[in-house]
Lab assay of single mutants.
Amino acid sequence: NQASVVANQLIPINTALTLVMMRSEVVTPVGIPADDIPRLVSMQVNRAVPLGTTLMPDMVKGYP
């Protein structure tokens, strides 16, 4: 099973992602692959992302 990117904390709308905000976890449904975490750094979320939420491609501005 492939690990996905999961919010490690509440991420407010328009926040630029940092490594501490994300963790990898095997979840269903599958979200953004954990391998993409380095690419996500400094990209902004377009909505508030609660703790434990799987990051989906449509939540991150400019992804992929």
Rank of each mutant, 00 (worst) to 15 (best):
N1L: 14
N1F: 14
N1V: 09
N1T: 14
A3W: 11
S4P: 00
S4R: 01
S4E: 01
V5E: 01
V5F: 01
A7M: 05
A7Q: 01
N8Q: 10
Q9P: 01
Q9H: 12
Q9D: 13
I11R: 00
I11A: 01
P12Y: 06
P12H: 09
P12L: 10
N14S: 08
A16K: 14
A16S: 10
T18M: 14
T18C: 04
L19V: 09
M21V: 03
M22Y: 02
M22C: 03
R23Y: 06
R23S: 08
R23E: 04
S24R: 15
S24H: 09
E25H: 11
V26A: 10
T28E: 13
P29T: 05
V30D: 15
V30W: 10
G31Y: 02
G31Q: 02
G31E: 01
A34E: 07
A34C: 04
D35I: 15
D35N: 14
D35G: 15
D35W: 06
D35E: 15
D36N: 15
D36G: 07
D36A: 13
I37K: 06
I37E: 03
P38T: 10
P38N: 10
P38E: 12
V41W: 03
V41K: 06
S42N: 15
S42E: 13
S42P: 00
M43T: 05
M43P: 00
Q44T: 11
Q44M: 12
Q44Y: 15
V45W: 01
V45P: 02
V45G: 01
N46H: 10
N46E: 08
N46G: 07
R47A: 09
A48W: 11
A48N: 11
A48L: 11
A48M: 13
V49A: 04
P50W: 07
L51D: 08
G52D: 10
T53H: 08
L55F: 10
L55D: 02
L55K: 01
L55H: 01
L55A: 02
M56K: 10
M56S: 07
M56I: 06
P57K: 05
D58S: 14
M59K: 01
M59L: 05
M59C: 04
M59V: 05
M59R: 03
M59W: 10
V60C: 03
V60E: 01
V60S: 01
K61L: 13
K61P: 10
K61T: 15
Y63K: 05
Y63T: 06
